[in-house]
């Protein structure tokens, strides 16, 4: 049970609003995301819902440009 929960946590992502972007960051605009990933980003930003790696192609560490800048972080 503990391992399963731990695995699940590792596969969860959250979006952290950031004010600036490092020069070596990977940055994508939401128009570069597929419909499913775009929907997941919108739900995460508007409703604070976590994102799972299975439903998106988001990469931890990258920054997504939406109405603000959001860095993808592991939960």
């Amino acid at each position: 049970m503990t391992m399963a929960a731990s695995t699940l946590r590792r596969r969860s992502l959250r979006l952290e609003r950031v004010d600036s972007v490092a020069t070596d960051a990977t940055v994508r605009h939401i128009d570069q995301l597929d419909s499913e990933t775009l929907g997941a980003v919108y739900r995460a930003v508007s409703g604070g819902r976590p994102v799972t790696t299975a439903e998106t192609d988001l990469e931890p560490g990258e920054v997504i440009v939406f109405t603000d800048y959001y860095r993808v972080e592991r939960v």
Binding site: V21, T23, D24, A25, T26, V27, H29, D31, Q32, V63, V65, Y69
Partner: peptide, 19 residues
């Protein structure tokens, strides 16, 4: 380069390198 993001550079929010 990422043509969608150049407007973010013009806004002064995004450095050149990630573009």
């Amino acid at each position: 380069y990422n043509r969608i993001l150049i407007k973010e550079h013009a806004k002064g929010k995004l450095p050149e390198a990630p573009i």
